[in-house]
Amino acid sequence: MASVKIENLSISYGKTSVLENISLEINSGEFFFLLGPSGCGKTTLLRSIAGLGQSPSDGKIFIGEEDVTTLPAWKRTAPMVFQSYALWPHMTVLKNVMYGLKERKVPEKESHERAYEVLKKVKMDEYALRRPSELSGGQQQRVALARALVIEPKLILLDEPLSNLDASLRVEMRYELRKIHDQSGLTMLYVTHDQEEALSMADRIALMNRGNIEQIGSPVELFRKPVSKFAAAFMGKINSIPGIIKSVDEKYVTVSTTLGDFTADFKGDFKQSQEVEICIRPGDINSGVKDFNCFSAKCMSSFFYGGQTEHLVESGDTVLHVLSEENITSDDFYVEKERIMVFSK
């Protein structure tokens, strides 16, 4: 299986630069996610690995050991699942899937067998002779996947493959994609703007923002130890409260806010009296009394989601979101030290 290495890659369209000096290493067999808001350059990065779109103004791209930076797209083996699926409307499902094999001069009979095999794997063998227009979105998605898988690549690129599916199907396809990855051991590079998709499926995630990589790490690292407020907010809902650094010691940093003092187990370059923000995820605010990180607030309204309930609680002018499993009975709340994030303003 192939690793992907990107060295100091820059891409610009005219004067607007889309990617700035990106370096990234994706291990062989990894399920790697490029995550970010729209316009952050994640799709441009993915397409540059396939050799599509604007060619890089600077930097290098390696697939495995091979430097593919100047290799034309059609000479690379990095099949892509397009966001729009890009199934050719004038060919049957089977023809679509066999296309890549034909380009690789695989004999007709063998490519026929391989195509059926792959279509069976994605449960689309019954539809082999249909046209793409006769298929539902989910079925088209499977065919697009089969078309990429059939050439037995070492690397597969997926450009927001689930974004055109409806919600329940989208969740179901996550399991299937993960299964395909685990069974094949393929290197898969997946672009999405949906942080839930990334958190649930990825081995590692590169979070991108405005043409730069904000942070690379495992889903848990990104969720728990984000390097910036942007990363923290992008990975999930946060409550942020402004404050001033009261004291810093080797392990803890203490911030004083309108809700009182909070001590956090969070690494960062902080100085006394610096203006900061503390960020707490709604699920990390617990009901009850502790001798640290404690505050009282009044519950204003509750939203029941089935398994969990979200409460809006008010303390002075500050409104916080609290996620809990049952109804809140007391007005007292606390947060564990390792669940508080601190970012300089």
Binding site: M80, A86, W88, R147, I151
Partner: peptide, 10 residues
């Protein structure tokens, strides 16, 4: 992307 998909496959 229809053309790109073909280029992508060789």
């Amino acid at each position: 992307s229809l053309e790109e998909a073909a280029v992508n496959l060789g």
